[in-house]
């Protein structure tokens, strides 16, 4: 058992290393090429737009992709929440920290709808023609891998599956993130920031619904 655990620790550390190296490399690449010199005369500011991009703009009543697809939206939220919870447990497993049972049960409970959401999203991708049209093998694999990781995490929390399995799969998942579409983990905030830059400077985000009169403008 201790041997499996040590092997799992090595897998996890390798995965974490690959993920972090890749993430840092990409962040540095974006940062040195950020090219944020902007010569335009602004009609708004970037930071409030970024704040809005991460709050108001993500709300289901504002976001068409959400309110037209509410079940998918909520499944997406559950799925991502599950991923964060499962990832947060990896260091706990790694160091074999003692955590109260109640917290373990809550986390397992969060993971169960998340796993089902992941499965349904996967089935959707397989069965809906437009999604198949968009998908490469990586899209199915990434979806399946994350769902599997969540399922194993929840079972480990409930004591059905040994912890070293979670740690190993988690390590493999981390290792795989930079390869395919899961790399959006690395880029999501940056993309949203650049979009906020665009809408913020131009005064589109956050929506104002009023005119800021300028003195010289008459």
């Amino acid at each position: 058992m201790a041997e499996s655990m040590n092997a799992a620790r090595i897998v996890f550390l390798s995965g974490l290393g690959v993920f972090l190296l890749s993430a840092v490399y990409q962040w540095i690449r974006v940062f040195i090429n950020a090219n944020t010199e902007d010569f335009t005369q602004p009609k708004g500011t970037v930071l409030p737009a970024f704040a809005y991009a991460l709050t108001g703009a993500m709300m289901p009543h504002k976001k068409e992709t959400a309110f037209l697809h509410l079940p998918t939206y909520w499944m997406g939220i559950a799925y991502h929440l599950g991923s964060f919870v499962a990832l947060a447990w990896l260091p706990v497993h790694f160091f074999e920290w003692r955590i109260p049972d109640s917290i373990m049960i809550v986390c397992a409970a969060v993971l169960i709808p998340s796993v089902f959401s992941g499965l349904i999203i996967l089935i959707k991708r397989i069965s809906v023609s437009s999604l198949r049209h968009l998908s490469s093998p990586d899209d199915y694999f990434s979806n399946a891998l994350v769902t599997l990781f969540q399922a194993i995490s929840s079972m480990a929390l409930l004591g059905i599956i040994p912890v070293f399995l979670v740690l190993s799969i988690g390590g493999l998942l981390l290792m795989y993130i930079p390869v395919g579409k899961l790399r959006h983990v690395i880029f999501f905030l940056i993309a949203r920031f650049f979009l906020s830059w665009f809408y913020g400077r131009r005064g589109v985000w956050p929506p104002k619904r009023r005119i800021l009169w300028k003195k010289n403008n008459h």
Partner: peptide, 12 residues
């Protein structure tokens, strides 16, 4: 770079 690497093909 950010925009090229972010799409997850959710199709929404």
């Amino acid at each position: 770079l950010a925009h090229l690497n972010s799409c997850v093909h959710c199709g929404l």
